[in-house]
Design a binder for these strands. Structure first.
Length: 287
DNA sequence: CTTCTTGTTACTGA
DNA sequence: ATCAGTAACAAGAA
């Protein structure tokens, strides 16, 4: 379940490893993981170099040294990008106890071989993730259309969120999960932010008051920053570019803690379904 | 066998 | 046109 902190961790790691390395070979193990013509995909990437790596919401964006195209990678729920030196093929993270720690394994969908023999593998158990080439213009149009502000930017503030929520009956959690409203928050961090702000996730967005909006925005930013610091949350599948787990899991206060005591008030946390997602909350401190 | 898991999009009906 | 709710997608785990 890579959300913003997990994707940000991967971006930062990969920047140190593969920038300006010549791409000697492109491996496609599952053709449908690559959107568009696989031959064109290979032709554009082979011999090229990644000149920069960035992220918008949960979407990874690889700029290329040659040509105007960008490589876009979305990890969806179970995608991993794991970098390996030659002879170091270890990747942990899948819940099945230590199965296939060698790469590529049966969940490896694509890969890049660099001139120094290092490799970057795209693994994806459930095959919802994808790799895609897009022109700069195509990408700009898509980002404009489908992505709201970054949650850690100044544009994401209480006034903005209150305006987006005005007169809307959708749950406040549903609003946070809508990537067009704010890009990068997923199920884990939505639950955590709402708990920290003391807001019931099912409350109609339009009925969250200004003071609560302030708390919610501040909590979202604080929690996302903290999660980046701990290199993300590994619940079952996520690993960073070195195949290592994230350590924010032990800082989660509500996600996956249903029936355990609220760390703020001691009341037992509950689990329900809101915005079509499993939702953990404290019935005593969230209203 | 059924139910649950999640990011995103398509679809449905209001 | 906009909004909100839900199914679908895949490959498992329990």
């Amino acid at each position: 379940m890579p959300e913003l902190p997990e994707v940000e961790t991967i971006v930062r790691d990969l920047r140190k490893k593969i920038i300006n390395q010549r791409i000697a070979d492109v491996l496609i193990f599952l053709p449908r993981a690559v959107q568009g013509d696989p031959d064109i995909f290979v032709r554009i990437l082979k011999g090229n170099r990644f000149s920069d790596i960035s992220r918008r919401g949960k979407l990874l964006i690889f700029s290329l040294a040659k040509g105007a195209d960008k490589l876009l990678i979305h990890l969806k729920m179970t995608g991993q990008l794991v970098y390996c030196h030659q002879g170091r093929l270890i990747a942990g993270g899948h819940s099945q106890a230590d199965f296939d720690r060698h790469l590529p394994n049966r969940h490896t969908r694509a890969g890049f071989v660099f001139a120094d023999h290092a490799r970057l593998y795209f693994n994806d158990l459930r095959t919802f993730g994808y790799l895609r080439l897009a022109s700069g213009q195509e990408l700009a149009r898509e980002l404009d259309k489908k992505f709201g502000p970054e949650p850690l930017s100044r544009q994401f503030n209480a006034i903005y969120l209150a305006r987006a929520a005005k007169d809307r009956k959708i749950s406040i959690k549903g609003l946070l999960l809508d990537q067009k409203i704010v890009a990068g928050i997923g199920n884990i961090y939505a639950d955590e932010a709402l708990h920290a702000a003391g807001i019931f996730p099912g409350r109609a967005a339009g009925r969250v008051n200004a003071r609560q909006m302030e708390k919610l925005v501040a909590a979202s930013k604080r929690i996302l920053r903290q999660a980046i610091k701990y290199r993300g949350t590994t619940f079952n599948n996520y690993v960073d570019a070195d195949g290592q787990r994230g350590h924010f899991y032990q800082h989660l206060k509500v996600y996956n803690r249903a029936d355990q005591p609220c760390l703020a008030c001691g009341h037992l946390l509950r689990k329900t379904r809101i915005a079509g997602r499993g939702t953990a909350y404290c019935p005593a401190c969230q209203h």
